[in-house]
Design a protein around this nucleic acid. Sequence first.
DNA 1: GCTGAAAATAATTCACT
DNA 2: AGTGAATTATTTTCAGC
Lengths: 159, 159
Amino acid sequence: MSKLGKPASLDEFDRKILSVLQRDNTTPQRTIGEAVNLSAPAVQRRIKRMTEEGVIEANVAVVDPGAVGQSITIFVEVEVISETLEQIRKAKREFVDAPEVQQCYYVTGEADFILIVIVSSMAEYEALTHRLFFDNPNVKRFRTFVAMDRVKVGLAVPV
Amino acid sequence: MSKLGKPASLDEFDRKILSVLQRDNTTPQRTIGEAVNLSAPAVQRRIKRMTEEGVIEANVAVVDPGAVGQSITIFVEVEVISETLEQIRKAKREFVDAPEVQQCYYVTGEADFILIVIVSSMAEYEALTHRLFFDNPNVKRFRTFVAMDRVKVGLAVPV
DNA sequence: GCTGAAAATAATTCACT
DNA sequence: AGTGAATTATTTTCAGC
């Protein structure tokens, strides 16, 4: 959910703090302060403000899918038939609600949605395709790409 | 980088801890302990072990791209000409080294790579396509999908 | 091996300048 | 925004299972 309240102008201090937190948010505020030439409380205040403004959306641990069952990462391009606002909203909701769907984007181009799905078996994926796609009369077409290697993974944003 | 050293067998405690940390890794260990019926030090030891084993790959802050310049998320399907091991490795390296490339997967299907790119303007994306694709004789074709909405974003894994 | 309890250390938060 | 005190969390040590 993006905060639309403010432009949330960030100064150079904020940007530097963010770039540290995107790599490792367990970095002590004191260490961050030394890196950006600010006291620890000042760093803390800025982090708190950016969290309240929604600049920092979440703080999460990144888990290796392979360690938790033999997980399979799959990309799915989905094309829908009707692109009315209501249909799009409904499709979004269905995709978001599926726990197997890790990331979902509404896109321009030859597809309408791109989904990143994580399952523990192809049988599970097949079941998911039935539930999300075949049983959905508004889905015209979908294409599957199975990831053989997660070459680079990150949610970081250039700051 | 996936740790291949051990199967890293996780018990129910580990899985519960992971599922908490994937939502919010700033949750105090004491609170986690109460949730999973374990003492704070026990929680801490398990987190440390899973971090060393690579089960926990990173701890990161998720930043709203819109807050940091008006960032644009783009998906790119890349098809290469030669799929020799050496060419694949070389392509991987080039994609990984580009800071605009946030996520990169090597996939089966009609494409060979799927990239998730974040740029602050289409001009920047165009420059990137020249650098990564047009100037690379091994790239046969690429397709661009511009994200209009990040419907769901997460790196969490079902545990 | 693992746990939980207590002490020591280090972090964060708050009042004040 | 910085300083220092108070609070809170994390880390280590250690005894017991």
